[in-house]
Amino acid sequence: MDATTAMYVSQAIHGIAYGMILFLIASGLNIIFGMMGVLNLAHASFFMLSGYFCYQVLKLTGNFWLALLIAPLVTAIFGIVVERVFLRRMHAFGHLGELMLTVGISLVILAGVKFFWGTESLPIPVPEALQGLIKIFGLEYPIYRLFVIGLSLVVLLLMVLVLYKTRLGMIVRAAVSDRDMVNALGINIPLVFMVVFGIGCWLAGIAGVAIAPILTVFPGLADQVGMDAFIVVVTGGIGSLGGAFIVAIIFGFLSSFGIQFVSQLAPVLMVGFMALVLIIRPHGLFGVEE
């Protein structure tokens, strides 16, 4: 294989890895939106927070795998607390209020992160087992990116299994389509909300740990990656998991090939794509009219 093809393939892998991470964040956002009807703008902050937790665990123990286990869990617990203390009481005041409340929460998290960890970017080393390159079909791939793709696929599979094969998944799907009816059937909807919110934050947490060694951890992380994830959700259609998946992968490619070919315009590509989709389909690629 010649050098050009190799470049294309490796850029494609970067794109898929980034797309998968975007999808992990976007899927959490989508599930929460489907259940509660609120687009949680603090979601990207949870994602960033998990990166910081990962840094902290690594600093204390030096074990990446432990960080991968603990940081998303702590993030999920944090998310559940936020849901119970703030969001739960807010359902009465309509969506705009909720949206702005989550903005407020994300600002407070940003300030907290700057206060505890400072403003400079914190490097997170790639774990030893995943360093270096691997040769497949005569091409060299960075192992860590492949690991990110694999990890995301496993999490994705797990999520699909939970959503379609378990009782909880059944309740969640029912609650997405008719919350009040499920509540009337005697199922504790607030509890289900809490669990779903926790799972959404856990997904964001996984993404946060996975991306930390690639991008390092810094206070602008939530803005930078989170913004892409929000664009994914809006473009794919708010509440649509399949749409989010497809758009996330497209955006991954747009991002990696965009940086390769038109580095100045890379951020414009995604927003341009979103604008194009919304002109043709105002509710997103796979969205349904409210």
Binding site: L39, H95, L96, L99, D223, M227, F230, I231, V233, V234, I238, P267, M270, V271, M274, A275, L278, I279, P282, H283, G284, E290
Partner: peptide
């Protein structure tokens, strides 16, 4: 673009354009 979307999407599109 913007007059066709409402609510959450309107907010998010602006967040993206702003960024």
């Amino acid at each position: 673009v913007v007059v066709r979307v409402t609510g959450t999407a309107f907010a998010m599109v602006h967040l993206a354009f702003g960024q």
